[in-house]
Simulated assay, not measured.
Amino acid sequence: MAESAAYRTQTSSPLGPLTITGSAHAVESVGWHLDNVVTTASIRSCALLDECARQLQAYFDGRLTAFDIPVAPTGTAFQQRVWQRLIDVSFGQTLSYGQLAQRLDPPTAPRAVGSAVGRNPISLILPCHRIVGSSGDLTGFAGGLDRKEWLLTHEGSILC
């Protein structure tokens, strides 16, 4: 039986604290503390989660543009397909939900893709913040649109 979410740690970011969970083999979630409250309960880290925290810090510091962390998000087969395609959206680039839908095999409806993107449990590493509305509008992000705007500005996708 696979080891699941046996480890949990937290890291800071310019946008507030993040919680990282996973096993010794793969990250299973990176999530925002929307209330900016950090708890130290249940923190039990491992080398992989510590490396994930280091890479997140390097990303926020502008020293990293691509993560090199094994991931194992939990979701349906369709969600897995969508999340796998998120990895292909490079730092500094954006795609619309429709463009992402066309990249799936077989292509599917943008709304279904939007629903899957919205359930992405591994924020930043599976870069759902790089998916925007068809006209380039910032739409939906579990961390909030202010964080999405900050991330895209940080990556140079939105010029101030």
Rank of each mutant, 00 (worst) to 15 (best):
S115R: 14
G144Y: 10
V30K: 01
R119N: 08
P73K: 02
G140I: 07
V82S: 02
K148C: 09
H129W: 08
P127G: 06
A6D: 04
I125D: 00
W32D: 04
G62Y: 06
Q80Y: 03
A47L: 12
A142M: 09
D68H: 11
A142V: 15
A5M: 15
R103W: 10
S123R: 13
P73L: 08
F141G: 01
Q79I: 14
A112D: 14
G22C: 08
F141L: 08
M1Q: 15
E28C: 00
G92R: 01
L95E: 12
F141N: 01
A5P: 08
G144T: 09
I131E: 03
V38H: 04
A58S: 13
F67N: 02
L100D: 04
S135W: 06
L151D: 00
S42V: 07
V132E: 03
A5H: 15
Q57L: 14
S42L: 11
A53F: 03
I43K: 11
A26Q: 11
D50F: 02
T94R: 07
S157G: 07
Y97M: 07
V71D: 01
F91S: 03
I20M: 01
A47F: 06
S13H: 10
V113T: 07
F91H: 03
V38Q: 09
L126S: 04
E155A: 04
R81A: 05
P70I: 08
I122E: 00
I158E: 09
T74A: 13
I69G: 00
E149A: 13
W83I: 09
P121D: 02
G136D: 10
S157V: 11
V117M: 03
C128H: 06
G118I: 06
P14N: 14
G136C: 11
L124V: 06
D68M: 05
E3W: 13
A2K: 12
L49H: 00
H154R: 13
T94L: 07
A109M: 10
S42P: 03
S12K: 14
L48R: 01
C46I: 03
P17N: 11
S13T: 14
Q84W: 11
E28L: 02
G133Q: 04
D68S: 15
H33A: 10
D50E: 09
D88H: 13
G118D: 05
Q80N: 08
T40C: 09
